[in-house]
Computed example of a mutant assay.
Amino acid sequence: MRDDVLRAVVTGASSGIGAATVRQLTALGWDVLAVARREDRLAELARQTGCEYRVVDVTDPADVERLGVEASARGPVHALVNNAGGAVGAEPVADADPRDWQAMFELNVLGTLRATQALLPALRSSGRGDVVVMSSTAGFVAYEGGGGYVAAKHAEHAMAATLRLELAGEPVRVIEIAPGMVRTEEFSVKRYRGDAERAATVYAGVREPLTADDVADCVVWTLTRPHHVNVDLLVVRPRAQAAQHKVVRDQ
């Protein structure tokens, strides 16, 4: 492999923001390792973009440890995009299933922690590494029915802020991207346990919610700033959404 090429690892790459990020980075000439659980989708993404891929479950410590070894063996790693995440359920705290909260914490928080720990040595040794944490505006503002997801995203925000302090002075940036309302093919459907009709109501009447490409564009923009420029936190929402509870919908 060429020594001058920039290399990235993107988790949660089988759909949505992760897949869009892989497409945009490879289009710019990056060497990208796409990571997710669904091999069929990864293989198709590789066919379309020329990326490489690994089947990895970020909630499995052994999987992530292996990813760190294999990714480092390919050469320097210049960016880790911690995109794997998601929400499960929308019950109030009083009725929530603790197993759903545990699953969200494992995926959003510990998945990001494991991947960052596994790739940090390679990011440091590259001389210009970036850790991207895909959080959410849910990491700043609570809302009814979102307790478990809100808690997980608050934890991711705290992790990014802490890691930035701990890496100050080293050649590694810590970048947090916090999207608001993004319409992807799976996020809300998974949250509502496969109920596509209920999931569609989230976006009903909203003109132009964000797309996966919009958020991927933000990721790529932050990664391609001169390396002395650190975008600590980028909050991105559709124009129709001013806050978690302020969304303009057509009648």
Rank of each mutant, 00 (worst) to 15 (best):
L120V: 14
F140E: 04
D130M: 06
R128V: 01
E144R: 09
F140A: 11
A151F: 08
E144A: 08
L120I: 14
F140P: 02
L163T: 10
G148R: 00
A161N: 10
A142K: 15
A151M: 13
S136N: 07
M134Q: 06
A138K: 00
G147C: 11
V133L: 08
V132I: 15
T162M: 14
T162N: 14
L119A: 06
Y143V: 00
E144Q: 09
F140C: 09
R114T: 09
T116S: 11
T137D: 06
D130N: 11
E156L: 11
A142V: 11
G145F: 01
R128H: 12
V150N: 05
G139N: 05
V150F: 06
R124G: 03
G146I: 00
F140K: 08
L119C: 10
R164V: 11
L120P: 01
D130C: 10
E156C: 10
R164I: 10
Y143E: 07
R114A: 08
A152M: 08
L119G: 03
L120E: 08
S125G: 12
F140V: 11
P121N: 08
L120D: 09
K153E: 01
L163W: 02
E156D: 09
P121W: 14
T116E: 04
V150R: 00
V141T: 09
S136F: 03
R128L: 09
V141L: 08
A115D: 07
A151P: 03
K153W: 06
A155D: 11
A151Y: 07
T116C: 07
S126I: 05
H154C: 03
L119Y: 03
M159W: 05
A152N: 04
A151V: 08
V133D: 01
A155T: 13
E156F: 07
E166P: 08
G139I: 01
Y149V: 04
G139D: 02
G127M: 14
L123K: 04
G146P: 03
V132F: 03
L119N: 03
A155Y: 08
D130K: 02
A115C: 15
